[in-house]
């Protein structure tokens, strides 16, 4: 069991993280990640039961702190055309399940629903998935050491992942 305070601290952290991304404060967002972080999004496949429908041999993201840093640096240039003008995004995070781990780390599962629109044509993409995180206490608060996102599409219905999950 974890305390109510601890639970709220974890939830507040993930809600605040979503807000940083939606407000495109990418450099602050990057600071939330530990230096040894893993950020991974496997490919979902359409398979009959009971076969697994997630393939971990290849990812849609397969990143670490160095590559996330490069992505953020790129978004900071004036030539990252695909996100300039930027997408309007809104990340809804919910359904938290929080599990304490050895060494003060916390394992969290949650659901993500991301609305994404380029602001034209009255259209939007919805990206839905289940996330797993490992949070570690570093300095004055939590840091993200691990994230894995299992998306709910085998053929992804948004034209690129110029946005983080």
């Amino acid at each position: 069991m974890i305390s109510v305070d601890h639970r709220f601290a974890v939830q507040d952290f993930l809600v605040a993280e979503a807000r940083l991304l939606d407000h495109r404060r990418f450099e602050e967002w990057l600071e939330l990640w530990t230096d040894d972080a893993t950020y991974y999004v496997p490919v979902r496949v359409s398979k009959k039961k009971p076969a697994p429908d997630v393939n971990d041999d290849i990812g849609l993201f397969d990143d670490n702190k160095i590559s996330l840093t490069l992505r953020v640096r790129r978004l900071g240039t004036d030539v990252a055309w695909a996100e300039d003008p930027p997408s309007f995004t809104r990340r809804f995070v919910s359904n938290f399940e929080i599990q304490p781990e050895e060494g003060g780390e916390v394992r969290v599962r949650d659901y993500l629903l991301m609305y994404r629109s380029r602001g034209d044509g009255g259209v939007h993409d919805l990206i839905s998935g289940e996330r797993e995180h490992v949070l570690r206490v570093e300095g004055d608060g939590f840091r993200l050491a691990y994230r894995r996102v299992v998306l709910d599409q085998a053929s992804i219905g948004t034209k690129n992942f110029g946005v983080f999950l």
Binding site: D63, N64, S67, L70, N160
Partner: peptide, 20 residues
């Protein structure tokens, strides 16, 4: 594999430019 995923494909930094 890591280079492929980060530079090309769905989230690749090059592919983002091209899809636009």
């Amino acid at each position: 594999r890591a280079t492929y995923v980060q530079t090309f494909g769905m989230s690749g930094m090059f592919d983002q430019d091209d899809t636009e």
